[in-house]
Amino acid sequence: MAPNTNPAAPVPELGEAADRPEGPVAAAILAAGVGAFALGVLTTLAEASEPIKEFLNLYDPVGPLSGKTTGAVIIWLVAWAVLHLIYRNKPVESRLALTVSLVLIGLGVIGTFPVFFQAFAPAE
């Protein structure tokens, strides 16, 4: 069988999924950025503030990492749910969502980078 050489040609095997609105995908991509950013913020805040570090210590054997990661996952899931409700039927392009998300992920990585967040540790 000859390969399908026309990207625009309708392909029966694709079903209706190909025509779904892009909004939910944009919401998922944006939410991932929000989650990554939240992890970076929580990591840096825990280093900068002893009360926040104690607040994030949900489980002593794990320490504040328990609260940082649980908090980031909750923020990610809530952001995803809210953004999904906003964008679920909208044909928005995910290009802007990816750009915003990559910036947020970059900030999140900076926030989790030891050289950065350890600079906020109180002087001993």
Partner: peptide, 26 residues
Amino acid sequence: HVAWLSPILATTVAFIVLYYGAGLIR
């Protein structure tokens, strides 16, 4: 810390692939 970014992004990828399925080719 940084390890936790991986499952968040992997879940996003899985969602996109499950959402569009074969339609992603278009």
